[in-house]
């Protein structure tokens, strides 16, 4: 690891001013991705501003029925929160199926949104990588790509977005609140917060340097009370998803009245399955329709020979998630 300086900030404005003033500075929250990548010289900030003392860790219901989750709330705190578990089972499940108990105690919700991809070429400072060093190329496309994305890919990057909870938050259309250097605040729609790689895979978010995530706001989504997060992976625990599905479903007389679907492990960003949702609304809740919705969503998939299995696996996982909810066993 290169030498770094360390400073602990007591308030958000000071932390934001310090990072904004210097392109070589970065915030430090839970550190679970950042310290790892600093050690491997993949990230190279020279000054770290520790934000762990900032008062941004509360989980508060809002008058309009939304839930505001502070950016420094830890994954374990959010997963255990009674309101989260009652209103959004898919969030609690996605969190508890991610990482390990130790990492969930460390990792913050804001940091989870900012975590970097697990692509082994990105994480190896010796390899070319368009995300790490724009213009150097993408060895994954012709290389080892079993874990890589099939949706939202470009000829410049096929890295999978690694987060579980961001998949649930995509299904719920959460908003990401930030604060900038002039103390101005901004709220990003979830879809706007995660950028497709396109020709600029180094740009993952629309944030300005030094703009700090302060909270994640989950709107009232009544259908989410009957929701689940299904995660398929190579080993049973402590592993990233090959495919995951966040799903919520409500039926009226056997017809789908409301549905939310998002996919993880298969896309370059948390993937809201809009095409599948559009197909399902008003449809009869039966397997043939679930299968057709899944086919529609995956019809734009661009797999490599090594990850082609994900196209079928994602469809089966979507069908299983929807059938589980339709058969009345939500969690």
């Amino acid at each position: 690891m290169r030498p770094i300086t360390y400073a602990r900030a007591a308030d958000a404005a000071t932390a934001i001013a310090a990072v904004s003033a210097d392109p070589g500075s970065a915030f430090l929250a839970g550190g679970t991705t950042e310290v790892d990548l600093l050690r491997q010289n993949v990230l190279t900030p020279r000054h770290l501003i520790d934000i762990n003392d900032l008062p941004l860790n509360s989980i508060e219901p809002q008058p309009d029925g939304a839930l505001r989750i502070g950016a420094l709330a830890r994954m374990s705190d959010v997963a255990a929160d009674p309101l989260v578990r009652e209103r959004y089972p898919m969030i609690a499940q996605a969190l508890e199926l991610g990482a390990s108990a130790q990492l969930r105690h460390m990792a913050s919700m804001g940091g989870n949104m900012m975590q970097r991809v697990r692509c082994s070429y990105f994480r190896d400072a010796e390899s070319p990588c368009n995300k790490r060093e724009p213009g150097t190329g993408c060895p994954a496309i012709e290389g080892v790509s079993r874990g890589h994305a099939v949706l939202g890919v470009s000829e410049h990057c096929v890295a999978t977005h690694p987060s579980d909870v961001a998949v649930a938050l995509a299904a719920l259309q959460a908003r990401v609140h930030t604060q900038g250097p002039g103390e101005e605040t901004h709220a990003y729609a979830f879809d706007d917060f995660f950028l497709l790689p396109g020709s600029t895979p180094d740009r993952e978010h629309p944030l300005a340097h030094g703009e700090l995530i302060t909270a994640i706001e989950v709107p009232a989504v009544p259908v989410a009370r009957r929701s689940l997060y299904l995660k398929v992976r190579d080993r049973e625990s402590y592993e990233f998803a090959l495919v995951s599905v966040a799903a919520a479903l409500s039926l009226v007389d056997g017809t789908i009245a409301d549905v939310r679907l998002a996919l993880g492990g298969v896309a370059t960003r948390p993937w809201r399955a809009m095409h599948a949702e559009d197909f399902l609304i008003g449809a009869v809740a039966q397997r043939a329709n679930f299968e057709q919705a899944a086919r529609v969503e995956l019809s734009t998939a661009r797999p490599t020979p090594m990850n082609a299995f994900k196209v079928e696996l994602a469809q089966r996982a979507m069908v299983r998630a929807l059938e589980t909810l339709a058969n009345g066993s939500p969690a």
Binding site: T5, A7, R8, A15, S25, H47
Partner: peptide
């Protein structure tokens, strides 16, 4: 090492190291 934090930030926050 890169440039140290600016004067204003230094006043508000104690930078230690490297």
């Amino acid at each position: 090492q890169g440039p140290a934090l600016g004067e204003r930030q230094r006043a508000a926050i104690e930078e230690r190291g490297p």
